[in-house]
Design a protein around this nucleic acid. Structure first.
Lengths: 176, 176
DNA sequence: ACCTGAACACCGTTCAAGT
DNA sequence: ACCTGAACACCGTTCAAGT
């Protein structure tokens, strides 16, 4: 298998697409594929070659944010008991959701159903497993349940009430 | 103000539009306005004259279902303590959501933000107020919080887990 | 009063033709 | 190997012309 060098213009095209998408999302929350291609100065075909679906493009745009969110789960577990770590992690999710609703939209694509390795689901699994071991979080709750509950964060009206509603959720997941 | 008779064709057009929309939703979950007009045998202008937005059309399609759901709240309160009534009512919502996801989609339109009299929010308010009076439901929960939490029912993956997730929500809303 | 349907604007996606 | 952009299919919405 010989090294296959990617053409320089292809590399810069891809980078520019992602950059432009990020900028468009900062100002509008919609992301028309044609608009991305035009603003990036590439043909539509090039856009689709790089990102076959809008979801793929969103995932790339928010990859760093999602990585940070996922990485914070084990960090919190190292410093706190599991229930506290879970509570703090939920606040992290809310903070991300407030700034960029896209983080949530990106993870709602349905990778859930596909069952492929959704890193956010894995982070939740770790937190839940730790809480189960501690006896502080309910044993009959799965990551997919939590993801369903967190879906409310993607609604625009959620902004004000997010932390309060997260508190309700957390209370429901605790062992009484 | 003299009686203004509506033309007979206008009446039947409106009825046929709603009927056709109901049928399309039964088989596809999408509802293209052009498709509704075509299937109903009317021009697009007629469709828009009757229903200025898709939301208005959906509201009309599901009006009977929503009415039933709303009416069940006081009925349940008459027969059960407030916490039980609330729990049973949540199950009613889940049952509706399973059969026709549109009921949920219709109520998510954003009447919430507008603050106009959303009958579902009123039904929830009655249940919460009764639970507060009884001391069995948390006092710091509003109908808008519950609506946000119920939003998960509109997701396709919710079907299997709906009752379980509702149980988690209910637990979070109970006074411990 | 009410209706029709052509027309406009917009979007996603594909693919023949180019370099 | 990669790119361009015309082209196709689709949708929402409006409005001039009809009855």
């Amino acid at each position: 298998m010989p090294e296959r060098r990617t053409r320089a213009d292809a590399v810069s095209n891809r980078a520019r697409i992602v950059q432009v998408a990020r900028e468009l999302l900062a100002s509008s929350s919609e992301l028309p594929m044609n608009a991305v291609a035009k603003a990036a100065g590439v043909g539509q075909g090039t856009l689709y070659r790089n990102f076959a679906t809008r979801e793929a493009l969103l995932a790339e745009v928010y990859r760093a944010d999602v990585d940070r969110l996922v990485a914070s789960a084990p960090e919190l577990l190292a410093e706190h008991d599991a229930a506290t770590a879970f509570r703090l992690w939920l606040d992290n999710v809310a903070d991300y959701a407030r700034v960029k609703r896209g983080v949530l939209a990106a993870l709602e694509g349905g990778e859930l159903a596909a069952g492929h390795h959704d890193p956010i689901a894995e982070a939740i699994d770790r937190l839940l497993a730790a809480g189960r071991a501690e006896g502080t979080l309910r044993a009959d709750v799965g990551a997919s349940d939590v993801l369903l509950l967190l879906g409310f964060l993607s609604r625009p009206e959620a902004a004000d009430r997010a932390h309060h509603v997260l508190d309700l959720i957390f209370t429901g997941l605790r062992v009484r």
